[in-house]
């Protein structure tokens, strides 16, 4: 034991108890990416707000100004009736267009019926509204999916492969709906708008192209990851840290996507 180091660590962890949770530092990194996106959207002219798990918006005059992240096992979306003490989301919209929601650590179900946690996802607001009626796990692919990695070691080919495999399992193409119970062929259920860009499409390539898929890392990637990500349309972003130009590029990529699609 090193007493002086332990005393200093105890003081730091005593002040910020999030750090003594197994996934605390990881959740902080996800929050940093999530709030950077929100700030970028706001700066680009979108309306942005924080929304409690019961669907209410956090206003400047509210006494309850908690931003809640889930730290335990991955889960779906809580029912609005369960109250405001589950995961907070960030909402955004352009003018009077449709609302969108940024989620953190939500599981999505794939065609295999396996569930996959997506660290940061962006979905139509109507999906959030519909699923909060009773709570549950969305089925299909979020329109933006970001895998966040804050560990010090570089991202491996295995890490990229695992993310791609998850995206493929949650991709619902038009043909897949022949075997599914949904009344309409949409890319994400329930609640996706009945518009061409939300309907299920024909090929993986088309779905990869119309969605935004990113791995955001605090450190770098090992050799060999770039070609794999490029082929399957996953953007690799390295060295994500406070105040860096790399954050600006990541934010710009998502904001540009939102400008075209939201």
């Amino acid at each position: 034991m090193i007493p002086a180091v332990q005393t200093a660590l105890n003081t730091i962890v005593g002040r910020v108890t999030t750090l003594d949770h197994a996934s605390g530092a990881g959740r902080i990194f996800e929050l940093f990416v999530m709030t950077s996106l929100a700030r970028g959207l706001r700066d680009a002219g979108f309306s942005v707000w924080l929304q409690r798990s019961d669907g209410t918006i956090i206003h400047p005059g509210d006494a309850d100004r908690r931003f809640i992240q889930r730290g335990g096992a991955p889960t779906g979306v809580s029912a609005a009736s369960a109250g405001p003490s589950n995961a907070t989301v960030i909402g955004f919209r352009w003018g009077r267009r449709r609302k969108w929601e940024i989620w953190n650590g939500i599981q999505f179900a794939g065609r295999s019926a396996a569930t996959h946690e997506i660290d940061i996802s962006i979905v139509p607001g109507s999906v959030g509204t519909e699923i909060r009626k009773a709570g549950g796990i969305p089925v299909g692919r979020p329109r933006v999916a970001i895998e966040c990695k804050d560990v010090g070691t570089s991202g491996s080919v295995d890490e990229m492969r695992a993310f791609i495999a998850r995206l493929y399992d949650v991709t619902l193409l038009h043909a897949h709906h022949r075997h599914m119970h949904f009344p309409d062929a949409r890319a994400l259920h329930p609640g996706s708008p009945n518009e061409p860009k939300h309907r299920a499409i024909v090929t993986y390539w088309q779905e990869n192209r119309r969605t935004k898929n990113i791995i955001a890392r605090r450190t770098g990637f090992t050799a060999g990851t770039a070609p794999l990500g490029e082929y399957h349309r996953v953007e690799p972003h390295r060295d994500i840290s406070v105040g860096s130009s790399t954050v600006d590029e990541l934010v710009s990529s998502v904001v540009n996507w939102a400008g075209r699609n939201a």
Binding site: I12, R39, D150, G243
Partner: peptide
């Protein structure tokens, strides 16, 4: 630890900014 605290500080500042602008 330094990176985590820096990220948390930046995040909380942004969250305050968003609420104040709502």
């Amino acid at each position: 630890l330094d990176a985590a605290l820096e990220q948390l500080q930046a995040s909380l500042e942004t969250l305050d900014f968003i609420v104040e602008a709502t």
